[in-house]
């Protein structure tokens, strides 16, 4: 357990030292949202109708862009090969790294999202749904993203490849996240999609961690 915390702490500390990198993810998130009214016009009704989808799409892109670095630097400086041969289950190391990725990128998105929702006139009803789906959905994004991040280590054209691998797998998260927000905006019940997202998180977490660890071990054998 101390090892687990030690790995989380190291990644958090590293991201604090590279503070700009973390802020950049949030800035990207905000910028994409800023483009929206400029693209479709400022009418509050139009913005409110598409706000759930837009916030979710930008959260998805922000998470995907940042997850690329999850193992990249460790791979380049040889830390990864040592992490693989530590007397500590690699699956736990992966879990620790995914958690720190979520703390570094998912959590800031969650904090800034209400502000953006306000700017897009999402309204009170959509607010709660948006926060709750993001809270359940962004860890899922980090988990699935980590599989892609592990698979592309050492590949040519890594970042483009990552989007090709990961975005199709993100689709269910997007659909359930947005449909909960939309239902809430229209005053319909929105519990079910949130529950589905929650069960996806619980169901896919062990599998994703296993797949990521397998991909990392495979990377070492190349």
């Amino acid at each position: 357990m101390t090892t687990f915390i030690e790995i989380v702490r190291r990644d958090l500390r590293l991201s604090m030292r590279h503070g700009m990198d973390t802020i950049m993810v949030v800035m990207f998130f905000v910028l994409v949202i800023l483009l929206l009214p400029l693209g479709v016009g400022p009418e509050p009704t139009v913005l409110a109708r598409i706000s759930g989808g837009m916030i979710w799409v930008s959260a998805l892109l922000a998470s995907m862009l940042s997850v690329e670095r999850l193992f990249q630097t460790d791979y380049e400086d040889g830390s990864l090969e040592l992490l693989v041969i530590q007397p500590f289950m690699l699956e736990l190391t992966v879990t620790a790294k995914v958690i720190s990725h979520w703390l570094i990128t998912g959590l800031p998105l969650l904090i800034i999202a209400p502000l953006l929702a306000g700017m897009l006139h999402t309204g009170k009803d959509g607010f709660a749904a948006l926060l709750l789906t993001l809270a359940v959905g962004t860890p899922l994004l980090s988990l699935i993203g980590s599989i892609g991040a592990a698979l592309i280590l050492g590949a040519r054209q890594g970042s483009i490849l990552l989007s090709l691998l990961v975005l199709p797998l993100y689709i269910p998260i997007l659909i359930f996240g947005v449909s909960a927000v939309d239902a809430a905006i229209h005053g319909l019940p929105w519990r079910l999609p949130v529950l589905i997202l929650g069960s996806l998180l619980i169901g896919l977490a062990p599998f994703s961690v296993w797949a990521t660890a397998a991909a990392l071990r495979e990377t070492m054998r190349r």
Partner: peptide, 28 residues
């Protein structure tokens, strides 16, 4: 994605193994 991942590595064997993991993830 599967096809691209296979060919993304200089080591063909490594590409196949990465792609195999992706296929399982995709299948689930």
């Amino acid at each position: 994605g599967y096809i691209a991942l296979q060919d993304a590595f200089d080591n063909a064997e490594g590409g196949s193994k990465a792609a195999a993991i992706l296929a399982l993830v995709g299948f689930i």
